[in-house]
Write a protein that binds this DNA or RNA. Sequence first.
RNA 1: UCCUCCUUAGCUCAGUUGGUUAGAGCAUCUGACUGUUAAUCAGAGGGUCGUUGGUUCAAGUCCAACAGGGGGAGCCA
Length: 480
Amino acid sequence: MFNQRIKIKELLSGEKTDYNCTVMGWVRSFRNNQFIALNDGSTQHNLQVVAALGLLSDETLKRITTGACIKATGTVVASLGKGQKLELKATDVTILGDSDAEKFPLQPKKHSLEFLREIAHLRFRTNTFGAIFRIRHSLAFAVHRFFNERGFVYINTPIITGSDAEGAGEMFRVTTLPLDGTAPKNENGHINFKEDFFGRETNLTVSGQLEGEMAAMAFADIYTFGPTFRAENSNTTRHLAEFWMIEPEMAFYDLEDNANLAEAFIKYIIRYAMEQNPDDLQFLSQRLEEEEKQKPQNERSEYSLLQKLEFVINNDFQRLTYTEAIDILKECNYNKKKKFQYLIDKWGVDLQSEHERYLVEKHFKKPVILTHYPKEIKAFYMRQNDDGKTVAAMDILAPGIGEIVGGSQREERLDKLVNRMKEMNIPTEELDWYLDSRRFGSCPHAGFGLGFERMVQFVTGMTNIRDVIPFPRYPKSAAF
RNA sequence: UCCUCCUUAGCUCAGUUGGUUAGAGCAUCUGACUGUUAAUCAGAGGGUCGUUGGUUCAAGUCCAACAGGGGGAGCCA
């Protein structure tokens, strides 16, 4: 009966003392041959297990090492020491799993994030990653809660897709055909995918949006939350080859409704994490402040992580159009003094990250919702505005992260959609099923995609996206 | 993919203008101490200086290529 254990979070949050219980967890440090700092992942805090001198054999004492898994039974008492309110006065300590002190890579000291990334299978056992993944869980849970409260239907869109016409990025091929050159060929000498498992070319999904739109044409409000794959050779702190994306799609929403939902959604899940994980956020906030102290003064941020989150949930996001943004950028000192690597000279250019950062971090100092982009730099399915130049697109830019949401009102008018697809050389035959939604009961609708890891980055303050997903996948890396 | 920086003990780092036997803290091991908070004190072990090639009387130190990592850019969420 292992489940008679009490979780350390529950034990430490109680006011009650002088009762017997059993805890199980992993040793963080062992001081003075008496004091075991024990963590079971339920909370940031360790439980101090006190094994009185003489209670345990020398042989057992030697096996209580950093990383070892133990079971401790005893009495919960008010602590005599200063660092904690409660502690467990042990009557018995059993070793469940040894951890060779000479080989276990984690020590009771600070490790670099780079080193921990190399031992991703063990980094869950550190304070920092414990906090990150408990917060990640809360955010994921809050995603479902938010949409459920609003009557959205959770739709699972396919991970293996047949459509290769979305143009959302490079894709990973899915096939069971042999790679040694013996794959069946057709009369042109190309590989004959009719003989492949699915009888056609298939890939891992780059977005569930098109399928999501089909469901929105029946349930009105839906969302997806699943893994997404991009085979781009991106080596940055904000890209992964495998990441999780949330894509709501709403019938009877225009661009403004869409932006309102996105803003409310982001604030809701941040607030939920702040309520559920105050200790974890406090820890990460302090950790960042210490890191900031290493930096020169002018590079330090004005606000702590907690202050930043507080500010975001209590203030409106700044909304402006692409055209307004270009005007601001054109007139700003950075542009005039040629501090931008890419100078803003004319309407129609795509914004570089330096421009997005200027708007968000220097000019407005808050999250920004940019709308009405030129149609040339956006996807085919976005609704064309009456000016003939722009589409009803919407990007949300977050300080320190950049684009966290990309969305739009969708083009619901069949003729306009087909024309745009032809202009952009997107084969309409491949997406005939998608066009059916515009043939049969089409309606105004909108949606967006939110990169879950980028959201976790924003809330935890982690600067590298590889540190907010348990086992990151990126070019030349799929260990574990 | 491009630009840039880095690679010295298990970890974090120092190592002078190229010059004898490459150092520290933590970790590990041995011992001491025992209400400690990354416990403390004493001692010990631990290195193919990322790899390969080059320059030189002499390379951890200079040069080149490759590998791995960080940061930035592009692609985007």
